[in-house]
Design a binder for these strands. Structure first.
Lengths: 123, 123
DNA sequence: AGTGTACTCGCAAATGATTTGCGTATTTTT
DNA sequence: AAAAATACGCAAATCATTTGCGAGTACACT
């Protein structure tokens, strides 16, 4: 099953990948079609094995699902996403709920900037 | 100039609008083409007169630019975006910078849930 | 008024990520 | 092994957005 190849790539990647990156990677080993990658990815997401992340650039990124609540530091130079678990938004959420009555179920947070690596290279 | 019609719609709208909503609105008064709307919108964004907001649904929303730093409470029922200025992320940003060296220049934050209105209607 | 330059627009076609229909293969169930 | 269910490739469809091009319009300078 090609699903296994796709899932393996995701499991072995330290960072989130686009469907195309996954496709390129898997293609090195077997014949596969991009639509199969997308279909499989949606499948894995439905089964909560993989998390789909929609970033501001309108491209979706996929990574191994884990229960940790994470956010990303996205470097505007190299476009890499670095996960961080620092997130004290719960307080803000409580405050909003208290003051507006809006019942928050989730949030997305994305930081943009320049990663240490790119800062270094810029010099 | 059709730009004025477009800018007017944005100015007079209490909430952010999609390109299509703007197109529909302007179309009631004058003949206009969707591509003109998009072109004009990009123009206004470049001039910092209008802010473009990319939401998780991959559709862009446009609203009058103001210098206030805002975030949105997005209702998953009615899909309306309610701005909020509650945002204490600066602390988190400082912490991240201190601990990772990542130089953050901006962030995006989006809350999802059910707005009071929809909560009420659900009953 | 005449000419040149620069926008402004409409239209149709292109884009690019993602999805879908459909027919064929492959696997799983009985 | 036959039937039922999935998986897959391929080509075409989607959908928001962009772009090329050609015509129309405005402004500037002589």
């Amino acid at each position: 099953m090609k699903k296994d190849y796709i899932f393996d790539v995701i499991k072995n990647s330290p960072n989130s990948l686009t469907a195309e990156e996954i496709y390129n990677n898997v293609s090195q080993n077997i014949n596969i079609n991009l639509s199969t990658v997308y279909r499989t990815l949606n499948n894995l997401v439905d089964k909560d094995l993989v998390t789909k992340i929609v970033r501001q650039d309108k491209i979706s990124y996929y990574e191994l699902a884990d229960n940790e609540h994470k956010h990303y530091l996205i470097c505007d130079k190299c476009n890499q996403a670095y996960p961080t678990d620092m997130c004290d938004i719960e307080k803000i959420e409580r405050k909003i709920k208290r003051e507006t009555g809006f019942n928050i179920t989730s949030h997305t947070l994305e930081f943009h900037g320049i990663c240490p690596e790119c800062s270094k290279n810029a010099k």
